[in-house]
Design a protein around this nucleic acid. Structure first.
Length: 433
RNA sequence: GCGGCCAUAGUGAAGUGGUUAUCACGGCAGUUUGUGGCACUGCAAUCAUGGGUUCAAUUCCCGUUGGCCGCCCCA
């Protein structure tokens, strides 16, 4: 019999207690910021009818054919196939339609926080189970909502204390002006194609916008001279984009125009943006991205509804927080440890435990028969701030010893006064921080 | 999915074709049971996993698993 060596599946990881303070901080900041901006939280199933995801994205794309997890399940209806959600937008749109949110007060502002699943080759900041926080704003076609989407992402990141981040933005037009631009682009590239990399020769057909952000030197040089979308926007799209940028200026959000910033899928319209870590030169530096998708609700069978949103990668945010040495609060942990010797002390300990917990003090108490040396060692390992010590002498006199474990000093109190004494000290301690 | 680099106690690192695998920090246990963090002593790695070469493999070769980097893609 060979020994099984179980480990987490490729691209997944455990989030251990040491890391939780970061996760708590991100979750709390996301909730607080977005609630404060009028967003309501929505939690969706982790798996759905796979059509929800594939319809919007397109069966042919790599995304669907290689990177989605399809479930082998015993569904009641054999024709339905389920898939783990690869992102949050499609499910939110499905929910918008299913719950008739088009009759809610508009615009509808929703946010989510949860795990997504993608079968990708893992790298740093690129996992198969990843957490994303994101917002979707439905029912407003004006630049106010584009701004709100960008601003809320920006606000979360800056409230977390992240430095040196910047928004890259672009407009990819609408079904009216984009086809014209694509023709122009193809015309420009047609004669240069033979000199370009094989990937680009393929992309020319499948996804011409991607020609702009190829990393190959030759292609990159051509991209610099290529016509850009911004020059080809129709008047409506142009105004919309200008309005968006004006809002960003008012709010002092640091942004740059990036004509090479694109989205592959058809339902995207107008504004696209990414927020990146300026210190990271590679493409892994993207920590949040989003854009407007005026076509998606209709594509999934709902009423024609304009929408815009973003999602941010929680693992990348946390890894950047660590890089930038951003401090996070530790959980409260054990504040008081009760140590006792003898039967009588044990009885008293229980009432002290009750008295302290009643005052919302975190107390660790196990009525063990260990020696005092052992007990105080345990208390110190638990990182307790105070120890209440009750020996046989104290039990008789109805007293307790309150020991400050970090200062190694102690005082004697009447047992009845414990809660008050501890509370006073803990508050003092808070202030000192 | 393609290509490259890598895998030694919990962590970070050394190291060797051959009887006890090294170091630091950390962990655990104890140093005689009314006081911890110090000090001292001891314990802990089938050298990722399966196979091959060899008298002998942790060390060389191959597969697998996993990590990192680049590409594809990036909803």
């Amino acid at each position: 019999m060979s020994k099984q060596n179980y480990q987490t599946p490729r691209g997944t990881k455990d989030i251990l207690p040491q890391d939780q303070p970061y996760w708590i901080k991100v979750r709390e900041t996301v909730e607080k910021t977005l609630n404060g901006l009028g967003f309501g939280r929505i939690d969706l199933p982790h798996f759905e009818n796979s059509d929800v995801f594939t319809r919007g994205i397109g069966e042919q794309t790599d995304v669907v054919s290689k990177e989605m997890y399809f479930l082998e399940s015993h569904s009641d209806d054999e024709s339905i196939r389920f898939a783990l959600r690869p992102e949050g937008t499609a499910g939110t749109v499905r929910s918008f339609i299913q719950n008739g949110m088009s009759s809610w007060s508009q615009p509808v502002r929703l946010f989510y926080f949860g795990a997504m699943f993608r079968h990708e080759r893992p790298q740093k900041g690129r996992y198969r189970e990843l957490y994303q926080a994101g917002v979707e704003i439905f029912g407003d076609e004006t630049a106010k909502s584009d701004y709100l989407a960008i601003m809320s992402a920006w606000e979360i990141l800056t409230r977390l204390g992240l430095k040196n981040i910047i928004v890259y933005t672009n407009s990819i037009g609408c079904p009216k002006c984009r086809p014209k631009y694509l023709l122009k682009l193809k015309k420009y590239y047609k004669e240069k194609l033979s000199k370009m990399c094989p990937d680009c020769q393929r992309r020319f057909e499948t996804n011409p916008l991607r020609l702009l952000d190829c990393k190959n030197e030759v292609c990159h040089a051509f991209a610099k001279e290529a016509p850009i979308m911004l020059d080809s926007l129709c008047p409506e799209c142009k105004t919309h984009f200008q309005d968006t940028l004006e809002y960003l200026d008012y709010f002092n959000i640091k942004y740059d125009l990036d004509p090479t910033l694109v989205r592959g899928l058809d339902y995207y319209t107008q504004t696209v943006f990414e927020i990146v870590d300026q210190a990271d030169k590679g493409r892994q530096g993207t920590i949040a991205g989003g854009g407007r998708y005026n076509g998606l609700v209709e594509l999934l069978g709902g009423p024609k509804t304009p929408a815009v949103g973003f999602s941010l990668g929680v693992e990348r945010v946390i890894s950047l927080m660590k890089e930038q040495k951003i401090e996070v609060n530790k959980p409260r942990g054990v504040e008081v440890c009760i140590l006792q010797l003898g039967e009588k002390a044990k009885e008293i300990s229980k009432s002290i435990y009750d008295a302290l917990t009643k005052h919302d003090i975190n107390v660790y108490f196990v009525p063990s028969n260990d020696g005092l040396r052992q007990q105080i060692k345990t208390a110190s390992k638990l990182d307790a701030q105070y120890a209440v010590i009750i020996g046989q002498q104290e039990a008789v006199k109805d007293e307790i010893i309150l020991r400050d474990l970090s200062a190694s000093s102690q005082e004697v109190f009447p047992a009845a006064d414990v809660a008050e004494a501890v509370k006073k000290r803990l508050i003092k301690c808070e202030c000192a921080k």
